[in-house]
């Protein structure tokens, strides 16, 4: 008797995980980041008469710069708390993971602090990217040699 009553009260006060809200926040913020990227490319193409491929390299560098700067000022974590995956899946999340691990281990010195911890979180992205790209690239190359 007491337990059921207790469970009811505990359930009532449990923090509800608002999955739909999380999805919508990630969708909207991710979409805004994507549209901003496209806008940046078009502005660079228009005002600096760059080719589209050059402008996209500038755009990615600019976004990485902004993500590093916002992380260094401490704003990025608050934005991630609000936008969730909308800022982690784009390249800003990659820059944020490198910036935050360098800042966290800064006190341990230049070599064993910043140097050896820089790729602590971003390393897995590079590792699995390179390994999978190597295998898939080899498959494509062999197929082209055999059938092409």
């Amino acid at each position: 008797m007491r337990n059921t009553k207790y469970d009811k009260i505990a359930d009532h006060h449990k923090a509800k995980e608002n999955r739909l809200g999380h999805f919508l926040a990630a969708f909207l913020s991710g979409g805004v980041v994507g549209a901003l990227g496209e806008g940046t490319i078009e502005i660079l193409c228009f005002f600096f008469s760059l080719s589209r491929s050059d402008a996209s390299v500038f755009m990615i560098t600019l976004f990485i710069f902004l993500a590093c700067l916002l992380t260094a000022f401490g704003y990025f974590d608050k934005m991630v708390h609000f936008c969730r995956c909308g800022l982690i899946i784009p390249i800003t999340g990659f820059a944020h993971s490198m910036m935050s691990s360098t800042l966290d281990y800064k006190e341990e010195g230049l070599i064993y602090g910043i140097g050896s911890n820089m790729f602590k979180l971003a390393g897995s992205v590079i590792l699995y990217g390179v390994v999978s790209a190597w295998f898939f690239g080899l498959i494509r190359y062999v197929l082209e040699v055999v059938f092409g």
């Binding site: 926040a25 979409g31 994507g34 899946i89």
Partner: peptide
């Protein structure tokens, strides 16, 4: 391009968020 960029990037981030939550 703005609309397709918004939808593509948004849907990928949404999928990531669903995987993270579930």
């Amino acid at each position: 391009y703005f609309l397709t960029s918004f939808l593509f990037c948004g849907i990928l981030c949404g999928i990531g968020q669903i995987i993270l939550d579930t």
